[in-house]
Design a protein around this nucleic acid. Structure first.
Lengths: 336, 336
DNA sequence: CTGTTAGCGCTTTCAA
DNA sequence: TTGAAAGCGCTAACAG
């Protein structure tokens, strides 16, 4: 039924070993022999069985990727970065959604390891001891992608979320704002949530602006929660002159809530966020936001993983990619 | 180093076969024996090797997915549908981006087949004879996802793009519009491009509205091309009262181009499209658009594939999922 | 209910 | 430069 390396060997009048050498581009084969083998392969329509190869060689040229949700634009962008570089190094990707749920994360880590992936790329929620423990049940290299572990023991590539938020809020302060509200993510989320909230607080502190409880509202990263939070801010006796949203989507919700209430952005209220998603340049006014290099996070972490898999030495196993403030039109000085 | 089924067998004082039975939940094992085996597994930290299992059983519980671009929101949504159902049936997904480029598509189909996937889900550009030929080099079931082959021989799940476009344009006509422009995709693309263009033409025809060359402008699905096309329409001596865009993104570009030119949507010009992406409800005015059930396309095609992989009989191997017009606020009657 | 025994298709020493 | 042979870790008859 299926043609194997053995069939090719017989057809070409050589041994299996030689066919194997040809298929794997081993230079120690006489050109003439090589030609014979190629012809036999062609004639028989031979296709190497990667599973058998994997068993024999203990390498699958496959890496596992655990991702919170591939339908999320940010993660999809990371995934694309991963795949492009993987491709370049002839690796394939097994993709598993885990929705930032610890049990699911642990489970997929294990099935990925069962599949004998050569390496693992992990994006998720907090990286707990339990995760680390799961990682340690095997020797395959791991890199954390767009997250870090608290202990800082696992290689990772990420941006500095705290600093990104800090920069965004500082921009508002530089413009003259003193009444700055924040639409945050869930504070349980270490990266998008907690760190950004802290950046906000630090910026306020540094500028000597008192922190006000009622100026912080938790959202769920989504458009609707941006609307909801903004409506709440508008109901306050003293409404903020600027709003910092932890994500573009919430910022857009905020802008629309403002506009739907007859307010103008940025004339009446300024809005800033972090992400720089496609949508940031697809609304009016164009959104000022801090760009996160999602594609690069994926690409760099995959590149790092290839090095780890080849046991190459790696100088810094913790890489922080730079973010950048993209100034567009949603921020202006507060009204006098 | 690594603990194998053999080690477990020895530790538990049974044969490999018995361990295998336990691991695979074969009911023919005395509960007591089962318990002994589980304990040995626990003690040794045994983790089955899926590669070895794959070689022996000729099943990898892995399916290959070729996708144009995971960073594209529509495809990412499909991918999520696929993954969820795959998960449910205990399959894993190997994901390959192929950018709708035939050479890349053929290449990844082959590497996926080398990896001995149990099934293949294909999303891409046109499905040519060359594709079919590549599919036929193996016996693994294939299903086309959000595409169809011209010959109609391969199982597939998709929506009726022509009809979706037809419905959208009809809505405009029902509203009283007679000057309807279209921002199309590239006509080489069978689904999003050509079919939607045809739906547009057919709707016009049926309503007895003459087709006008200058009212059709090719875009590339992106926001910017929606802007560009709309600016062109506005430069026409007789400008259209309504615009049909082949994608939401182009529609949003169109709306902004209109607004940036001081026109109001829908008071001055109506805009309609197809996709119903998240963004459709994240702009002002809210976009009227035909919803494509992307997640379901993924889910249903994966479900179909599981049946094919189990050699279950399948009544209809060509499934067309229903689309639906989502009426929001970007369409109104033309000015008198 | 359990064990024995062949492979699955390939890579990889080791010799020649 | 080539071949022989021993596995890689597991499943799947088959026998008992």
């Amino acid at each position: 039924m299926t043609v194997t390396i053995y069939d090719v060997a017989r057809e070409a009048g050589v041994s299996m070993a030689t066919v194997s050498r040809v298929v794997n581009n081993n230079p120690n084969v006489k050109p003439q022999t090589r030609k014979k083998v190629y012809e036999a392969i062609e004639r028989l329509g031979y296709r190497p069985n990667a599973v058998a190869r994997g068993l024999a060689s203990k390498k699958t040229t496959t890496v596992g990727v655990v991702i919170p949700d591939i339908a999320n634009a940010n993660f999809a962008e990371v995934a694309r970065g991963i795949e492009d570089i993987a491709n370049m190094y002839h690796y394939n990707i097994i993709l598993c959604n885990a929705d930032k749920r610890k049990d699911k994360e642990i489970r997929v880590i294990n099935t990925l390891l069962e599949k004998q992936v050569d390496g693992l790329l992990f994006m998720g929620g907090a990286v707990t001891d339990e995760h680390v423990q799961a990682f340690n049940t095997s020797n395959v290299p791991i890199v954390l992608c767009a997250t870090t572990d608290e202990k800082g023991v696992i290689p990772s590539v990420d941006i500095n979320h705290e600093e990104a938020a800090f920069d965004a809020v500082n921009r508002l302060i530089a413009e003259g704002h003193r009444s700055i509200a924040m639409i945050s993510g869930t504070l349980q989320d270490p990266a998008n949530g907690f760190a950004r909230y802290h950046g906000y607080k630090r910026a306020l502190e540094q500028a000597g602006i008192p922190y006000r409880e009622e100026y912080v509202r938790n959202g769920n990263y989504k458009y609707e929660s941006g609307i909801e939070a903004t409506q709440y801010f508008l109901s306050l006796p003293e409404r903020p002159t600027a709003i910092f949203a932890a994500t573009d989507e919430m910022a857009i919700g905020s802008i629309h809530a403002l506009q739907d209430n007859g307010l103008s952005v940025p004339a009446d209220v300024s809005v800033i966020s972090v992400d720089n998603s496609r949508m940031a340049s697809m609304i009016r006014p164009l959104l000022t936001t801090v760009a996160q290099p999602m594609y690069d996070i994926g690409a760099v972490s995959m590149r790092l993983l290839t090095k780890l898999m080849k046991k190459e030495s790696v100088d810094h196993a913790k890489v922080i990619l730079p973010h950048e403030l993209i100034v567009r039109r949603s921020v202006a000085a507060p009204k006098a």
